[in-house]
Write a protein that binds this DNA or RNA. Structure first.
Lengths: 131, 131
DNA sequence: CTAAAGTTTGACACTGGTGTCAATGTCAAG
DNA sequence: CTTGACATTGACACCAGTGTCAAACTTTAG
């Protein structure tokens, strides 16, 4: 699939897809004509990247995270001490973000509930198409 | 307490505290000499603000979120339909971020576990001083 | 009284993530 | 072959969040 389709399927602009590639978060094969070509797996990847970036993780770290994820997937026991420590550090940062967001989510819910707007809640909770 | 102390206690630079105030996320009383003075409650508030901003919520929205939180605290049934809808929208965004981060957190954990770095995990999990 | 530390406002500047535009190339449909 | 949709690269630009520095004032310590 070409970049346009990938963009459409992920809701991420082509501009950003190229940017992420430039930041080394993505790799793309090239068709003989120079066009980038993507496989199914890239849809997921792009969504994840965009999600993390939107959640305030700088691209540099997104790379580290996703790389570790890959390494784990095909369990490579190789892990330079230093990388592990960096991840551990990052872990607490991520957890802090989660806690903070969770708290806000809960207050938003409480607020909507308290103001007779449960209707909106139902709508918001269902999808869960999150990546 | 003055801005310096507040900064020390929250780990947020004075620069940012002033910035947040300028963005209308914070209010500060002024001592006769012009110095900003803060109450205990501000420690919490500043931490929350910084946390949300770090989690990728733009300051404009942070204001909306925290305002709703306050309103809910002293249950004001007042809630312009429009605000409720904005919050509902924001809610799904927040939830998406949470899901994405949670997923990454779990993979980091799995990775560290898989590479015999449990030691680091213990360290990272304990504190939970999150705000 | 003086020196050091803290505060105030304001300005300049940088970085990272994005939008947008331009010039050029490729491909598919009429 | 021409037209229109989509790709490519590269540049310019913008905004938000931060850092940092400067000049002036206040307060605290010695």
């Amino acid at each position: 699939m070409k970049i346009g389709e990938l963009a459409a399927r992920t809701g991420v602009t082509t501009r950003l897809i190229r940017y992420y590639e430039q930041q080394d978060l993505l790799e793309a094969d090239r068709a003989p004509n120079g066009y980038r070509t993507y496989a199914e797996a890239h849809v997921e990847r792009v969504s994840r990247v965009a999600g993390l970036v939107q959640a305030g993780i700088p691209t540099r770290l997104v790379k580290v995270l996703l790389d570790a994820e890959l390494a784990a997937a095909r369990d490579e026991p190789t892990c330079p001490r230093e990388v592990a420590e960096q991840l551990a550090t990052e872990l607490v940062g991520v957890q802090a973000r989660i806690d903070c967001l969770t708290r806000s989510r809960d207050s938003i819910r409480a607020f909507l509930r308290a103001t007779q707007n449960e209707v909106l809640l139902r709508e918001a909770d269902k999808p869960a198409v999150a990546v």
